[in-house]
Simulated assay, not measured.
Amino acid sequence: MSSELRKQRTDTGIFRWSVDAFCGRTSCKNQRREKFCESSRRNPAEQPLRAFFGYFLPPRAKSIIARKRKEAHQFINNNTHKEKNMRKIAIYGKGGIGKSTTTSNLSAALALKGYKVMQVGCDPKSDSTKNLMEGKRIPTVLEQLKAKGEALKLEDIVFEGFGGVLCVEAGGPTPGIGCAGRGIISAFEKLAELEAFETYKPDIVIYDVLGDVVCGGFAMPIRGGYAREVFIVSSGEMMALYAASNIAQAIKNFGRRGYARLKGIILNAKNIENEQELVAKAAAEIGTEVVQYVPRSGDIQIAENQGGTVSEFVKDSPMVQVYNELAERVLAMSEDEEE
Protein backbone atom coordinates (compact mmCIF):
# COMPACT_ATOMS: atom_id res chain seq x y z
CA MET A 1 0.00 0.00 0.00
CA SER A 2 1.43 3.38 -0.96
CA SER A 3 2.04 5.91 1.80
CA GLU A 4 -0.35 8.35 0.12
CA LEU A 5 -3.24 5.92 0.06
CA ARG A 6 -2.46 4.58 3.54
CA LYS A 7 -2.72 8.06 5.00
CA GLN A 8 -6.15 8.42 3.44
CA ARG A 9 -7.51 5.29 5.06
CA THR A 10 -10.20 5.89 7.68
CA ASP A 11 -11.09 3.68 10.62
CA THR A 12 -13.85 2.13 8.52
CA GLY A 13 -11.32 0.80 6.05
CA ILE A 14 -12.68 3.16 3.41
CA PHE A 15 -10.57 5.95 2.02
CA ARG A 16 -11.19 9.50 3.12
CA TRP A 17 -11.07 10.71 -0.46
CA SER A 18 -13.92 13.18 -0.22
CA VAL A 19 -13.26 14.95 3.06
CA ASP A 20 -9.53 15.34 2.41
CA ALA A 21 -10.14 16.53 -1.12
CA PHE A 22 -12.55 19.18 0.02
CA CYS A 23 -11.53 20.12 3.56
CA GLY A 24 -7.79 19.70 3.00
CA ARG A 25 -7.65 21.89 -0.08
CA THR A 26 -10.57 24.28 0.29
CA SER A 27 -11.10 26.51 3.31
CA CYS A 28 -14.51 26.50 4.92
CA LYS A 29 -15.96 29.96 4.60
CA ASN A 30 -18.88 29.68 6.93
CA GLN A 31 -19.97 27.82 10.03
CA ARG A 32 -22.27 25.52 8.14
CA ARG A 33 -19.39 24.16 6.07
CA GLU A 34 -17.14 23.86 9.14
CA LYS A 35 -19.80 21.92 11.02
CA PHE A 36 -20.34 19.61 8.07
CA CYS A 37 -16.63 18.95 7.57
CA GLU A 38 -16.11 18.11 11.25
CA SER A 39 -19.14 15.82 11.24
CA SER A 40 -17.88 14.07 8.10
CA ARG A 41 -14.50 13.45 9.67
CA ARG A 42 -16.10 11.80 12.69
CA ASN A 43 -18.51 9.63 10.72
CA PRO A 44 -17.42 9.51 7.07
CA ALA A 45 -19.52 6.44 6.34
CA GLU A 46 -22.63 8.04 7.79
CA GLN A 47 -22.44 11.40 6.06
CA PRO A 48 -23.52 11.24 2.39
CA LEU A 49 -21.55 13.88 0.59
CA ARG A 50 -22.91 13.81 -2.93
CA ALA A 51 -25.62 16.42 -2.46
CA PHE A 52 -23.33 18.70 -0.48
CA PHE A 53 -20.51 18.60 -2.99
CA GLY A 54 -22.87 18.88 -5.91
CA TYR A 55 -24.19 22.12 -4.47
CA PHE A 56 -21.02 23.76 -3.14
CA LEU A 57 -18.00 22.53 -5.09
CA PRO A 58 -16.54 24.06 -8.21
CA PRO A 59 -15.82 21.75 -11.17
CA ARG A 60 -12.11 21.41 -10.33
CA ALA A 61 -12.87 20.19 -6.79
CA LYS A 62 -15.40 17.71 -8.16
CA SER A 63 -12.74 16.41 -10.52
CA ILE A 64 -10.30 15.91 -7.63
CA ILE A 65 -12.93 14.00 -5.67
CA ALA A 66 -13.80 11.78 -8.63
CA ARG A 67 -10.12 11.01 -9.22
CA LYS A 68 -9.47 10.17 -5.55
CA ARG A 69 -12.53 7.98 -5.45
CA LYS A 70 -11.43 6.09 -8.52
CA GLU A 71 -7.91 5.62 -7.14
CA ALA A 72 -9.25 4.32 -3.82
CA HIS A 73 -11.59 1.78 -5.37
CA GLN A 74 -8.94 0.70 -7.87
CA PHE A 75 -6.51 0.12 -5.01
CA ILE A 76 -9.04 -1.99 -3.11
CA ASN A 77 -9.84 -4.06 -6.20
CA ASN A 78 -6.17 -4.63 -6.99
CA ASN A 79 -5.31 -5.73 -3.46
CA THR A 80 -8.32 -7.79 -2.46
CA HIS A 81 -6.64 -11.00 -3.62
CA LYS A 82 -3.80 -10.49 -1.17
CA GLU A 83 -5.97 -11.47 1.80
CA LYS A 84 -8.06 -14.02 -0.05
CA ASN A 85 -9.38 -16.77 2.23
CA MET A 86 -7.74 -15.24 5.33
CA ARG A 87 -9.80 -15.51 8.49
CA LYS A 88 -9.34 -12.59 10.86
CA ILE A 89 -10.25 -13.13 14.51
CA ALA A 90 -9.85 -11.01 17.64
CA ILE A 91 -9.92 -12.51 21.12
CA TYR A 92 -10.60 -10.03 23.92
CA GLY A 93 -10.69 -10.48 27.67
CA LYS A 94 -9.94 -8.93 31.03
CA GLY A 95 -6.29 -9.00 32.10
CA GLY A 96 -5.43 -12.20 33.98
CA ILE A 97 -8.49 -14.10 32.76
CA GLY A 98 -6.40 -16.61 30.77
CA LYS A 99 -6.90 -14.93 27.41
CA SER A 100 -3.33 -15.44 26.17
CA THR A 101 -3.24 -19.03 27.41
CA THR A 102 -6.50 -19.72 25.59
CA THR A 103 -5.31 -17.97 22.43
CA SER A 104 -1.95 -19.74 22.26
CA ASN A 105 -3.55 -23.16 22.81
CA LEU A 106 -6.13 -22.31 20.14
CA SER A 107 -3.38 -21.27 17.71
CA ALA A 108 -1.50 -24.51 18.39
CA ALA A 109 -4.66 -26.58 17.79
CA LEU A 110 -5.35 -24.79 14.51
CA ALA A 111 -1.73 -25.19 13.37
CA LEU A 112 -1.85 -28.93 14.03
CA LYS A 113 -4.96 -29.09 11.82
CA GLY A 114 -2.82 -27.81 8.96
CA TYR A 115 -3.66 -24.11 9.03
CA LYS A 116 -1.02 -21.43 8.73
CA VAL A 117 -1.67 -19.23 11.76
CA MET A 118 -0.36 -15.81 12.73
CA GLN A 119 -0.88 -14.68 16.33
CA VAL A 120 -0.51 -10.99 17.11
CA GLY A 121 -0.22 -10.05 20.77
CA CYS A 122 -1.84 -6.68 21.53
CA ASP A 123 -0.99 -6.30 25.20
CA PRO A 124 1.74 -4.10 26.73
CA LYS A 125 2.94 -7.13 28.74
CA SER A 126 4.01 -8.70 25.44
CA ASP A 127 3.53 -12.25 26.72
CA SER A 128 0.83 -13.48 24.33
CA THR A 129 3.10 -15.75 22.29
CA LYS A 130 5.61 -17.02 24.86
CA ASN A 131 3.88 -20.43 25.11
CA LEU A 132 4.41 -20.83 21.37
CA MET A 133 8.07 -19.74 21.61
CA GLU A 134 9.33 -22.25 24.21
CA GLY A 135 8.58 -19.81 27.00
CA LYS A 136 10.82 -17.12 25.53
CA ARG A 137 9.89 -13.49 25.09
CA ILE A 138 10.26 -12.18 21.54
CA PRO A 139 11.23 -8.59 20.58
CA THR A 140 8.19 -6.39 20.06
CA VAL A 141 7.35 -4.28 17.04
CA LEU A 142 7.74 -1.06 19.04
CA GLU A 143 11.09 -2.13 20.49
CA GLN A 144 12.47 -3.03 17.09
CA LEU A 145 11.03 0.08 15.52
CA LYS A 146 12.78 2.21 18.12
CA ALA A 147 16.06 0.34 17.71
CA LYS A 148 16.17 -0.02 13.92
CA GLY A 149 13.92 2.70 12.57
CA GLU A 150 13.48 2.60 8.81
CA ALA A 151 15.89 -0.36 8.57
CA LEU A 152 13.29 -2.59 10.26
CA LYS A 153 12.48 -5.81 8.38
CA LEU A 154 9.74 -8.39 8.80
CA GLU A 155 12.17 -10.99 10.13
CA ASP A 156 12.94 -8.59 13.00
CA ILE A 157 9.35 -8.76 14.29
CA VAL A 158 7.81 -12.02 12.99
CA PHE A 159 9.03 -15.27 14.57
CA GLU A 160 8.05 -18.86 13.90
CA GLY A 161 6.86 -20.81 16.93
CA PHE A 162 5.34 -24.20 17.70
CA GLY A 163 3.55 -25.80 14.76
CA GLY A 164 4.77 -23.05 12.45
CA VAL A 165 2.63 -20.39 14.14
CA LEU A 166 3.89 -16.93 13.17
CA CYS A 167 4.30 -14.88 16.34
CA VAL A 168 4.18 -11.08 16.63
CA GLU A 169 4.07 -8.88 19.72
CA ALA A 170 2.94 -5.28 19.26
CA GLY A 171 4.49 -4.18 22.54
CA GLY A 172 3.85 -1.07 24.55
CA PRO A 173 5.51 2.04 26.01
CA THR A 174 7.76 2.22 29.06
CA PRO A 175 5.51 1.83 32.14
CA GLY A 176 4.21 5.21 33.21
CA ILE A 177 5.18 6.84 29.92
CA GLY A 178 3.12 7.04 26.75
CA CYS A 179 -0.10 5.36 25.62
CA ALA A 180 -0.34 1.60 25.16
CA GLY A 181 -3.26 1.95 22.78
CA ARG A 182 -1.30 4.33 20.61
CA GLY A 183 1.54 1.81 20.58
CA ILE A 184 -0.79 -0.84 19.14
CA ILE A 185 -1.83 1.54 16.38
CA SER A 186 1.83 2.24 15.51
CA ALA A 187 2.59 -1.48 15.44
CA PHE A 188 -0.34 -2.20 13.14
CA GLU A 189 0.71 0.57 10.80
CA LYS A 190 4.23 -0.86 10.59
CA LEU A 191 2.93 -4.38 9.88
CA ALA A 192 0.80 -2.94 7.07
CA GLU A 193 3.71 -0.93 5.70
CA LEU A 194 5.94 -4.02 5.61
CA GLU A 195 3.09 -6.04 4.02
CA ALA A 196 3.28 -8.79 6.64
CA PHE A 197 0.05 -10.52 5.61
CA GLU A 198 0.85 -10.33 1.91
CA THR A 199 4.30 -11.80 2.53
CA TYR A 200 3.42 -14.69 4.88
CA LYS A 201 -0.11 -15.33 3.55
CA PRO A 202 -1.57 -16.85 6.75
CA ASP A 203 -4.84 -18.75 6.64
CA ILE A 204 -5.86 -17.35 10.02
CA VAL A 205 -4.79 -14.25 11.93
CA ILE A 206 -5.63 -14.12 15.62
CA TYR A 207 -5.32 -10.87 17.58
CA ASP A 208 -4.91 -11.38 21.33
CA VAL A 209 -6.17 -8.11 22.80
CA LEU A 210 -6.33 -6.75 26.33
CA GLY A 211 -9.97 -5.95 27.07
CA ASP A 212 -10.02 -4.09 30.39
CA VAL A 213 -10.42 -0.91 28.36
CA VAL A 214 -11.53 -0.53 24.76
CA CYS A 215 -9.94 2.79 23.86
CA GLY A 216 -8.99 3.74 20.31
CA GLY A 217 -5.80 1.68 20.30
CA PHE A 218 -7.18 -1.47 21.89
CA ALA A 219 -10.25 -1.20 19.66
CA MET A 220 -8.04 -1.06 16.56
CA PRO A 221 -8.52 -4.75 15.61
CA ILE A 222 -12.32 -4.39 15.58
CA ARG A 223 -12.67 -0.92 14.08
CA GLY A 224 -9.78 -0.83 11.64
CA GLY A 225 -10.87 -3.75 9.48
CA TYR A 226 -8.23 -6.07 10.92
CA ALA A 227 -10.61 -8.57 12.54
CA ARG A 228 -14.02 -9.73 11.36
CA GLU A 229 -15.05 -11.99 14.23
CA VAL A 230 -14.59 -11.36 17.94
CA PHE A 231 -14.62 -13.82 20.83
CA ILE A 232 -14.46 -12.81 24.48
CA VAL A 233 -12.70 -14.90 27.13
CA SER A 234 -14.45 -14.71 30.49
CA SER A 235 -15.05 -16.60 33.70
CA GLY A 236 -17.93 -16.35 36.15
CA GLU A 237 -16.13 -13.70 38.20
CA MET A 238 -17.98 -10.40 38.45
CA MET A 239 -15.17 -8.19 37.06
CA ALA A 240 -14.54 -10.57 34.16
CA LEU A 241 -18.23 -10.45 33.21
CA TYR A 242 -18.25 -6.67 33.63
CA ALA A 243 -15.31 -6.38 31.23
CA ALA A 244 -17.06 -8.76 28.81
CA SER A 245 -20.15 -6.54 28.87
CA ASN A 246 -18.09 -3.44 28.10
CA ILE A 247 -16.31 -5.17 25.22
CA ALA A 248 -19.62 -6.41 23.83
CA GLN A 249 -21.04 -2.89 23.95
CA ALA A 250 -18.04 -1.54 22.05
CA ILE A 251 -18.39 -4.25 19.41
CA LYS A 252 -22.09 -3.52 19.12
CA ASN A 253 -21.38 0.17 18.56
CA PHE A 254 -18.82 -0.59 15.88
CA GLY A 255 -21.06 -3.28 14.38
CA ARG A 256 -23.58 -0.63 13.36
CA ARG A 257 -20.91 0.67 10.99
CA GLY A 258 -20.16 -2.70 9.44
CA TYR A 259 -17.10 -3.61 11.51
CA ALA A 260 -16.33 -6.82 13.41
CA ARG A 261 -19.06 -8.98 14.93
CA LEU A 262 -19.25 -10.61 18.35
CA LYS A 263 -19.49 -14.38 17.92
CA GLY A 264 -19.55 -15.54 21.52
CA ILE A 265 -17.92 -16.05 24.90
CA ILE A 266 -15.23 -18.62 25.66
CA LEU A 267 -15.79 -19.66 29.26
CA ASN A 268 -12.39 -20.18 30.89
CA ALA A 269 -13.56 -21.72 34.15
CA LYS A 270 -12.37 -20.63 37.60
CA ASN A 271 -14.50 -23.23 39.43
CA ILE A 272 -16.93 -20.67 40.79
CA GLU A 273 -20.26 -22.00 42.08
CA ASN A 274 -22.86 -22.18 39.28
CA GLU A 275 -20.29 -20.69 36.92
CA GLN A 276 -21.70 -22.07 33.68
CA GLU A 277 -25.18 -20.82 34.50
CA LEU A 278 -23.88 -17.38 35.48
CA VAL A 279 -21.91 -16.95 32.25
CA ALA A 280 -24.73 -18.33 30.09
CA LYS A 281 -27.12 -15.81 31.65
CA ALA A 282 -24.65 -12.94 31.15
CA ALA A 283 -24.08 -14.00 27.54
CA ALA A 284 -27.81 -13.95 26.87
CA GLU A 285 -28.08 -10.47 28.38
CA ILE A 286 -25.47 -9.08 25.99
CA GLY A 287 -26.97 -10.89 23.02
CA THR A 288 -24.51 -13.71 22.47
CA GLU A 289 -23.76 -17.29 23.58
CA VAL A 290 -21.11 -19.42 25.25
CA VAL A 291 -19.23 -21.08 22.40
CA GLN A 292 -16.91 -23.28 24.46
CA TYR A 293 -16.46 -24.36 28.06
CA VAL A 294 -12.78 -24.66 29.02
CA PRO A 295 -12.52 -26.46 32.37
CA ARG A 296 -9.83 -25.61 34.89
CA SER A 297 -6.98 -28.09 34.61
CA GLY A 298 -3.55 -28.53 36.09
CA ASP A 299 -2.31 -29.80 32.73
CA ILE A 300 -2.31 -26.23 31.42
CA GLN A 301 0.08 -25.16 34.18
CA ILE A 302 2.27 -28.21 33.55
CA ALA A 303 2.58 -27.22 29.89
CA GLU A 304 3.19 -23.54 30.70
CA ASN A 305 5.92 -24.45 33.19
CA GLN A 306 7.71 -26.10 30.27
CA GLY A 307 7.12 -23.05 28.07
CA GLY A 308 4.44 -24.44 25.81
CA THR A 309 0.87 -25.55 25.16
CA VAL A 310 -0.92 -28.78 26.08
CA SER A 311 -0.74 -29.86 22.43
CA GLU A 312 3.04 -29.81 22.70
CA PHE A 313 3.81 -31.07 26.20
CA VAL A 314 0.74 -32.91 27.56
CA LYS A 315 -0.53 -34.61 24.45
CA ASP A 316 -2.63 -37.19 26.30
CA SER A 317 -4.46 -34.52 28.33
CA PRO A 318 -8.25 -34.15 27.91
CA MET A 319 -7.52 -30.43 27.42
CA VAL A 320 -6.09 -31.18 23.98
CA GLN A 321 -9.55 -32.29 22.86
CA VAL A 322 -11.13 -29.22 24.51
CA TYR A 323 -8.94 -26.87 22.47
CA ASN A 324 -9.52 -28.94 19.33
CA GLU A 325 -13.26 -28.49 19.86
CA LEU A 326 -12.73 -24.76 20.37
CA ALA A 327 -10.74 -24.63 17.13
CA GLU A 328 -13.57 -26.36 15.27
CA ARG A 329 -16.14 -23.94 16.71
CA VAL A 330 -14.04 -20.92 15.79
CA LEU A 331 -13.57 -22.20 12.25
CA ALA A 332 -17.29 -22.86 11.90
CA MET A 333 -18.22 -19.42 13.20
CA SER A 334 -15.64 -17.41 11.28
CA GLU A 335 -15.61 -16.48 7.63
CA ASP A 336 -12.85 -16.24 5.11
CA GLU A 337 -12.31 -13.19 2.91
CA GLU A 338 -13.85 -14.84 -0.13
CA GLU A 339 -17.27 -15.36 1.38
Rank of each mutant, 00 (worst) to 15 (best):
R32P: 04
A240C: 09
K35N: 11
I76T: 01
V168Q: 09
D203F: 00
S297K: 01
K130G: 12
G96T: 05
E83Y: 15
E195T: 10
G216S: 05
P318N: 02
M86L: 10
K146Q: 14
G149H: 11
L110M: 11
G308N: 02
P173C: 08
P139C: 04
A260D: 07
S100W: 07
N77G: 04
P295T: 05
L326G: 02
Y293S: 11
G216E: 06
R137T: 15
F188N: 07
R137P: 08
G183H: 04
S63P: 01
G298Q: 12
L106V: 08
K315A: 01
A284G: 14
A108H: 10
N30C: 11
A192N: 14
A45R: 01
K125T: 14
P58F: 12
G217C: 04
E46F: 06
V213S: 08
L49Y: 00
A51L: 01
G172P: 12
E134H: 14
K94V: 13
G176Y: 12
I222H: 03
Y242I: 13
P295L: 08
A243W: 04
L210W: 04
L278S: 14
F53T: 00
I265T: 12
S39W: 10
Y55R: 11
T10C: 01
K190D: 01
G98A: 04
V117A: 09
T12W: 00
R41M: 11
K116Y: 13
E150R: 12
R33P: 09
I251K: 01
E328W: 12
R50F: 00
R16N: 00
A196P: 10
I251S: 05
E312L: 05
T129E: 15
G308F: 03
A227H: 03
T102R: 02
K315G: 02
Y259G: 14
V214K: 05
R256V: 13
T102S: 11
V322G: 03
V279Y: 12
Q74M: 03
M238E: 15
E71S: 00
G211F: 09
S126I: 07
A51C: 06
Y55N: 06
E155Q: 13
R228K: 14
V314S: 01
N274K: 13
L57F: 07
G54Q: 01
L132C: 06
L112C: 08
S334L: 09
N78I: 12
E237N: 03
A51G: 05
Y242S: 14
F197P: 03
G287H: 07
T80L: 06
A280W: 10
N43R: 10
S128F: 04
M319H: 02
E285L: 09
E328M: 08
D299W: 00
D127T: 07
K190Y: 08
Y226L: 13
L152G: 04
K153C: 08
A66L: 00
T80D: 05
L110G: 10
K84V: 14
N85I: 07
E275Q: 10
E229V: 05
E34D: 11
P48T: 00
I266A: 13
A332V: 12
F53W: 05
K263E: 15
E335R: 14
A332H: 13
R261E: 15
N305S: 07
R296W: 14
P295G: 06
V320E: 06
G163K: 04
